[in-house]
């Protein structure tokens, strides 16, 4: 073999690829991963709050709905002696079938799932924003 002959581009690429792949990697000293992780653990990364799983307006709507519902149930359940315009308006609303609603498994499962989802969103969001929680 003639070691002094010229390599064409393809041969040169092949030889260099082979050489770099077998001998081109430089190993870092042992424990560098640990040192990097320690530095990262001790850094205070500014955490940019990302958008929540459930946006704020959903919470506001649900809270508004819950307050309205509670007020309605309270008004319906309370006997009114003097009939004023507000009481009259509330009395004219359709009767709230609380008993049948509470006995419906579908409704109960839906309500439970919604509560679980909102609770999970809250917990996860707090964990994400807590700099002391390791991810």
């Amino acid at each position: 073999m003639d070691a002094h002959r010229r390599l064409n581009d393809q041969d040169a690429d092949k030889a260099l690829l082979e050489l770099f792949h077998t001998s081109g990697r430089i190993a870092a000293s042992e424990g560098i991963e640990t040192r990097i992780l320690e530095r990262i653990a001790h850094s205070n990364r500014p955490i940019a709050p990302a958008s929540a799983l459930i946006p704020g307006w959903v919470w506001a709507t649900l809270a508004g709905g819950a307050v309205t519902l509670t007020a309605y149930l309270f008004a319906v359940a309370t006997p009114t002696i003097e009939v004023g315009p507000i009481e009259r308006a509330l009395t004219n609303l359709p009767r709230f079938p609380l008993d049948s609603m509470l006995s419906s498994p579908w409704l109960l499962v839906t309500a439970t799932s919604a509560i679980a989802l909102l609770a999970m969103d809250t917990v996860l969001n707090r964990m994400r924003l807590d700099p002391h929680v390791k991810h």
Binding site: I26, A28, S29, I32, R35, I36, R39, I40, S43, R45
Partner: peptide
């Protein structure tokens, strides 16, 4: 080697 390791650590910190 030492400088490269320092740069490696800095790189991962910056990336993080």
């Amino acid at each position: 080697q030492e400088e490269a390791e320092e740069a490696t650590q800095d790189t991962f910190m910056k990336a993080y």
